[in-house]
Design a protein around this nucleic acid. Structure first.
Lengths: 213, 213
DNA sequence: TAAAAAATAACCCTATCGGGTAATTGTTTC
DNA sequence: GAAACAATTACCCGATAGGGTTATTTTTTA
């Protein structure tokens, strides 16, 4: 049983090359090729493919929007983004909108076919450069950039503040006086270099001093 | 020039197999093999490898800790995590601590050697299952879970609040009266189901209504 | 064009916030 | 054992936050 595939690619030559490549490759059957994805939902309705190869930069509607629409209505259809763009924004947008793989056009035809097979096996193929960006993203996002030298007690009070507790509620929860709460918060604001509670909450969450569930 | 490699793996049989596999493979040279990574830094100091293959579950010190220590002192050494564990926590911890690849032990010897070559070419090899988890993580993390029906203006004011602006400062920045600011924030608090500014900031950041840089 | 929603503004009022100053008790750390 | 630090409490005081009520204008939507 061959994999029913639809190709979205606005470059005529490349689109024909892709069709030829897949027709030659045992395992794939090209059900349709289009130079834009403005009617992608209608095309999905009528062609019911198992796999979509999607370019990003196309006239009318971007491939990103196409991925979003198709995945919303047909979450089972596998979508491989195939593009020249390697910037963080587009990569992460496509992933978040449901792409099952992200391949740069620098990939060899052999690797491309391998990747298409991989995605039909439930895998998530991506170009090495994309994989690197994804790993880097995790490292950047989880690195705690600052040590504000807050004491254990101060962090505890800060957690209550993030939860939206008033000074009075914090005092009751910690079994300490209101004045002590004020003193602690005052020290916390000084250490965080902020001047009010709202800013302290933003700072605490930004630097992951306290976590949200 | 062969790639100088060190192997950390507490299963004696597997460790020997790995050494044999890499010795057979043109391109790699095993500089040392160990059944724990308690002295990994000293071993790095003396062996100065280009590549480390790291198991996670080892006696004494976990491979995760090993990755962290080695990457802190020798960021240039490539580290491939090679393990049976496929849970989110361990995968993401290893990535965040600097692993350059994450391979499950279900991988074939051929693919393993390919992946080691890939990482030395600057790539980031990972098992298909790991790639899937990573993509899924992005989708989960960026999905906005709630629609609070805030107007454009309300979101604008909320952004100022997150920055730590006082009501008065917001009024000045938006060129509106203090009373209008109060009214807007009152509506915002009602829509977010919170009762004060600090809680609103936490809610706004939690649900990504506003972003931090 | 009518209705609904968003944005604007004013007034009143009280609880809370948050800074300053000063002092007492335990705990670490050197 | 002295010194430094963390945690605690108290008092004073002014600015701010935030709720209630009412009303006008502008923009959006049906």
């Amino acid at each position: 049983m061959k994999v029913k595939t639809v190709i979205y690619e606005d470059n005529d030559q490349l689109r024909d090359s892709l069709e030829l490549l897949l027709s030659d490759s045992s395992g794939f059957e090209v059900a349709g090729t289009f130079n834009n994805c403005m009617n992608c939902i209608k095309q999905m309705d009528s062609l019911l493919p198992q796999l979509v190869i999607m370019d990003i930069d196309m006239p009318g509607m971007s491939g990103l929007e196409g991925v979003k629409q198709i995945k919303t209505l047909y979450p089972g259809i596998r979508i491989i983004v195939y593009t020249v763009f390697d910037d963080d924004q587009r990569i992460f947008d496509c992933i978040c909108n449901g792409a099952d793989g992200y391949l740069l056009k620098t990939i060899s035809p052999l690797k491309l076919v391998e990747s298409l097979k991989e995605v039909m096996d439930g895998g998530t193929p991506m170009s090495p450069f994309v994989a690197k960006k994804v790993f880097q993203y995790f490292r950047d996002k989880t690195t705690i950039n600052a040590d504000f030298q807050l004491s254990r007690r101060e962090i505890e009070l800060l957690e209550y503040l993030v939860k939206g507790y008033s000074y009075k509620m914090i005092a009751a929860s910690c079994f300490i006086s209101l004045d002590t709460v004020k003193k602690h918060l005052q020290n916390i604001y000084r250490k965080l270099h902020v001047c009010c509670g709202t800013e302290a909450v933003a700072m605490a969450l930004k630097h992951k001093i306290v976590k949200l569930d």
